[in-house]
Design a protein around this nucleic acid. Sequence first.
DNA 1: GGCAAAACTGAAACGTGTTCTAATCTGGCC
DNA 2: GGCCAGATTAGAACACGTTTCAGTTTTGCC
Lengths: 194, 194
Amino acid sequence: MAVEELLDAALTPRQEQRRRRVIKAARKLAATGGYDAVQMREVAAAADVALGTIYRYFSSKDALLAAAMAEWTSELQELIARTPPAGGTPADRLVEVLRRACDSMEAQPKLSAALVRALASADDGVAAGSADVNARVAAISAEILDHLDPETRADVLAVLGHVWYSALVGWVNGRTRIEDVGDELERAARLLLA
Amino acid sequence: MAVEELLDAALTPRQEQRRRRVIKAARKLAATGGYDAVQMREVAAAADVALGTIYRYFSSKDALLAAAMAEWTSELQELIARTPPAGGTPADRLVEVLRRACDSMEAQPKLSAALVRALASADDGVAAGSADVNARVAAISAEILDHLDPETRADVLAVLGHVWYSALVGWVNGRTRIEDVGDELERAARLLLA
DNA sequence: GGCAAAACTGAAACGTGTTCTAATCTGGCC
DNA sequence: GGCCAGATTAGAACACGTTTCAGTTTTGCC
């Protein structure tokens, strides 16, 4: 989709700036008003870009938010790489990482909810962003679980990824509280690594 | 929301019929054209009901589809109760039930995808349908796992519920194939019951 | 049987994501 | 410098979920 093509073909500096402005505007709107406040006309105005231009860079509103989520995840990854989890069992360290991710989301609940909500979209453009997010989460977790054989590790990570995503959706849709997400993840992690 | 109130206050026969017609029409449209084909004006026309009337029974399109999903789940529950899973370990029986559910979805892929997609909605009206679905799935699985102590069982079921939902979303959004859903579930079930 | 309240209808209207159009601008190439 | 293809813009237009409204029908009650 658009994003891909434009990422492959090197963007001119001005295009790069435009793309950044759009994502930034989306994040800002999402941070204060959540998913519904990210209205494409408003994003365009805030990014000082024509409405149609956004659609040249992102195939849909959800694809835009997925790109924002990928960006956010990348920042989180750096943060965790800078301060790796302290000692304890692998399960403990894994739980700590998951908790820290939850804390980050808790700090920006509206934004987080909007991003997660976008990930649920059927839009094709979301798949790329979603894959990116998954890969980063897996990368973070993988080294903590290096005591497991590769196959088991992949299985555990796959299950954890599912729990993580599903718990987030439950929270986003108001069925659980954000604290519950961390609890669910911890429960799953300990069950799987027992 | 509307659904609840109307379910509590006994519906008149004609209301009951209208409600049924609406759900039936939605299922039919979803079965042939998927989520996008379930257009409220079309549902209204097919159900021979005014557009506004649908909104008296269901708070949104997604709530309507969630109700359809609850209906579908209930039918599946009956089906499984009628032919309980054959022998083997509890894990085997659980896997068989999950596989059978996947088979049912595979038989009506468009419909299933539409229903799952609706479950992801933030709409309040969806929560009720979603809770209903979860309860039924838990009920089906619970007796298979009666060898576990209640707490562990609850944990296992919670995790399985997450995997189930998340894997379905992955399929609905075209990131995996329907066969993968069953595989993911089996993997999780065996990992958890190991 | 008649009456008030609630439900239903048909149709118009609204909001927001997405698409389209015609005009203008930008960037690379001779 | 001039030209062309593609990018950008402003704005209109479109699609579909949802809401609203005025008028009609059904329902429960005396």
